[in-house]
C-alpha cells in the first residue's frame, strides 16, 4: 500500500473500556497477557528439560559402559519406597490439576483445599525421599563421603539386598564404578528434590494468597503456570523412577 497517507495510525479508541486491575499496562488485553505468561512458562519448562537432559545423557552413557555396576548399585534402591513415592507424586499432580480447575471455576474453598493437599503430598514425597537418603548415608553410599564398596565386592554382607537379588560379587574394578551410579542418582534426585522444595515454597505463598481470594476472581494465570511446573516435576520423576529403580532389576 504505497499510497497510504498515514505512517503510524492508531487502533480505534472506541473499544476503550474498563480494564481489570491485573492487566499490566503494556498488554492490549487480558487474553494477550495470559497467553504471554503461559507461553513463557512453557519455554521455561523447555529449558528445564534440557537442564535435566544433560544428566539423563550422562546416566544413559555410563549405564551402557558400566552395566554390571549400575545393575548392582540400583539394587540398593528399594522399589517399594520408589513406588510409594510415585503414587504420592501422581496423586499430588491430580490434586494440583483439580486446584487449577477450582480456580478456573472460582471455587475458593476447593482451591485452598487442593493446594493444601498438594503441599502435604509434596512434603510426604520429600519425607520418603529423606528416608531413602538416610539409608544411603548409613551404608556409606554417598559419593565423596567415605564411599564404601562393601555391598558390591561382598554382597552377602548386605543381607537384606542379598536376600532379594542374590547378586554375585563384582570385581573391584567394576565395583568402583557404582560410585558413578550414586553420583548420578544423587545429582538427579537431588535436583528433582530441589525443584520440589521450590514448588512447596511457592505453594505456601499461593495458599496464603488463595485464602484472600486472589486466584478466584478471574485471574488464574499464576495458578495455571504453577500447575504446569508441578506437573513437569511429576514427569521428571516418572522417568527417574523407571531409569533408577525399575530397568535394572534383572541381570
Amino acid at each position: 500500500m504505497p499510497d497510504s497517507p498515514v505512517i503510524v495510525h492508531g487502533a480505534s479508541e472506541a473499544d476503550h473500556h474498563e480494564h481489570p486491575a491485573y492487566l499490566r499496562h503494556h498488554f492490549e488485553s487480558v487474553e494477550q497477557q495470559a497467553d504471554a505468561a503461559g507461553f513463557a512458562m512453557w519455554l521455561f519448562l523447555v529449558t528445564e528439560v534440557m537442564f535435566f537432559g544433560g544428566m539423563f545423557t550422562a546416566y544413559l552413557i555410563y549405564r551402557n559402559w558400566y552395566y554390571p555396576a549400575f545393575v548392582a548399585a540400583s539394587h540398593q534402591l528399594d522399589v517399594r519406597w520408589g513406588t510409594l513415592n510415585t503414587l504420592v507424586l501422581i496423586i499430588s499432580s491430580f490434586t494440583m490439576a483439580m486446584g487449577v480447575w477450582c480456580a478456573e471455576t472460582r471455587r475458593k474453598k476447593g482451591l485452598v483445599l487442593c493446594l493444601m493437599l498438594t503441599m502435604i503430598l509434596g512434603l510426604g514425597f520429600l519425607g520418603i525421599k529423606s528416608i531413602e537418603y538416610s539409608e544411603k548415608i548409613e551404608k556409606h553410599h554417598v559419593p565423596g563421603f567415605h564411599y564404601s564398596l562393601q555391598s558390591f565386592t561382598d554382597p552377602q554382607s548386605d543381607s537384606a539386598v542379598y536376600a532379594e537379588y542374590h547378586d554375585k560379587p563384582l570385581p573391584l574394578d567394576m565395583a568402583r564404578h557404582t560410585e558413578i551410579y550414586f553420583s548420578l542418582y544423587f545429582a538427579l534426585t537431588g535436583m528433582h528434590a530441589l525443584h520440589m522444595i521450590i514448588g512447596i515454597a511457592i505453594l505456601g505463598f499461593m495458599i496464603f494468597r488463595a485464602q484472600a481470594g486472589a486466584y478466584t476472581s478471574g485471574h488464574v494465570t499464576f495458578v495455571e503456570n504453577f500447575g504446569l511446573y508441578w506437573h513437569f516435576v511429576d514427569v521428571i520423576w516418572i522417568y527417574l523412577f523407571a531409569l533408577l529403580y525399575l530397568i535394572s532389576r534383572h541381570q
Binding site: A58, P143, G144, F145, E179, I180, S183, A187
Partner: peptide, 8 residues
Amino acid sequence: ERTLGIGV
C-alpha cells in the same frame, strides 16, 4: 566433581 569428587 571438584568439591565432592563424585567421579562423573
